[in-house]
Simulated assay, not measured.
Amino acid sequence: MKIYNREFLTSQVRLTEGEKKFAEVVGVVEKLEDIKKQRAPYVLFGIKEDVGVLANYGRKGSSDAWEACLKALLDMQANSLTKPESIIILGDLDFSKEMRTASLLDPDGDNFGETIGKLVEQIDLEVSQLVRFIVSTGKIPVAIGGGHNNGFGLVKGVSDALGGPINVVSMDADSNFKALTHRHNENAFSYAMEKGYVDRYAIFGIHKSYTAQEVYNRMEQFKNRIGFYFFEDVIIRENPPFHQAVKVAKQFIRNKKFGLEIDVDAIEGFPSSAETPTGFSMTQARQFARFFSKNPLPSYVHICEAIPEKTEVNTVGKALASLVLDLTA
């Protein structure tokens, strides 16, 4: 865990006379234990890894999402509407070592799945321990970056801190409910439900053609605990329309504390590990984030799978920072 200080944050932006930037106002801490002394309800941190995506033979680059988001967020105006005082920017979990090890593995090798799956499990453990501590202080962890595999560590950390399973609502084009083989970015919630960390799981925006029949069959075994709201029904057929579908999904997960997941793979044209040509608009994703971040508050938030290409770093960073603002302001 690399903890950021004020000097580091302000070094990331150009300060302007007559303006206050986020970098100058957001909360910082010297050590983890100081989190509980702060009044800000949200603790923001980055996850710098793409091992989980590689473990599923996916496109690397999600490790860069946090830095893109951070720079855009720190450069935002600090005013009474953006409310930077509601956020503590903690720092990042840097998994460079695990990424280097993963990059040396042969995807066609006999032991690839088992070996890289163990690396993902190490990342799970680190994420869950940090999240458990943050939640134990009464704060809400907000994790940016990495693959959707980190949903498992987040759920486990919250569940451990609260002493029981929680619910999850996820904006995603995929199920993240694949078979319990080695750990990777598309089986976080099949594992989390199997381990007893998740009670109810709502998937918002799943595409009918992106999910294998065997996954649908697996979800059918948990039919009273999994609710899925198809993108084609919500947006193409408008049955139910978006503004009603989010209410139905929220009602499904309201009986317990819940986590909020936003996989940017669900957003049309968003540079990501599985970019889609058809999906929710960025505005709809922001509305989703806003709707699920209020009354009641989520127990954690996770925004994942973004891949900021060199020509798109500023755009991706601003998009991720906008989602953070929708959640916290």
Rank of each mutant, 00 (worst) to 15 (best):
G145Y: 00
A40M: 02
I123E: 14
D263T: 04
M99A: 14
E275T: 15
S128W: 08
F222P: 00
P107V: 08
P240Q: 10
E33A: 13
L105R: 09
K60R: 13
I116N: 06
Q12W: 09
H148Y: 01
V301H: 00
G18A: 05
K139L: 06
S96R: 11
Y216E: 08
A306L: 06
F8P: 08
V135N: 04
N224Q: 14
A179Y: 11
A40H: 02
E194H: 15
E232P: 12
L90N: 02
E312F: 13
V158D: 01
T311N: 14
V198T: 11
F291M: 04
P84M: 06
S62N: 01
K60Y: 06
G259Q: 04
I235M: 15
V26D: 01
E261S: 14
K60A: 15
S62E: 03
K31A: 10
E49Y: 04
N176G: 14
L44E: 00
E85Y: 06
L180V: 09
G61P: 05
A40P: 01
G157D: 04
Q77F: 05
I267A: 02
L54I: 12
S322C: 07
R100T: 05
Q77T: 15
E98I: 07
G151P: 05
G145D: 01
D108W: 12
Q251S: 15
Y197D: 06
G145E: 00
F8Q: 09
G109Y: 11
K36M: 05
D94G: 09
T115N: 09
L93R: 11
R14Q: 13
S281C: 07
V28T: 15
R225H: 15
R286I: 10
K21V: 12
K318D: 13
V127H: 08
Y4S: 07
R225T: 05
S272D: 09
A245D: 06
G18Y: 05
E24I: 07
F228T: 02
Y229E: 02
T101F: 13
T211R: 11
R100P: 00
K20E: 12
I206K: 05
R39I: 02
I47E: 04
V158Y: 05
E7Y: 08
A23R: 06
M76I: 09
K71L: 12
N176S: 11
K208R: 14
I116F: 08
V169W: 00
T211S: 07
V234I: 15
V120L: 09
K247E: 15
E49L: 03
T101P: 00
K60E: 13
A306I: 04
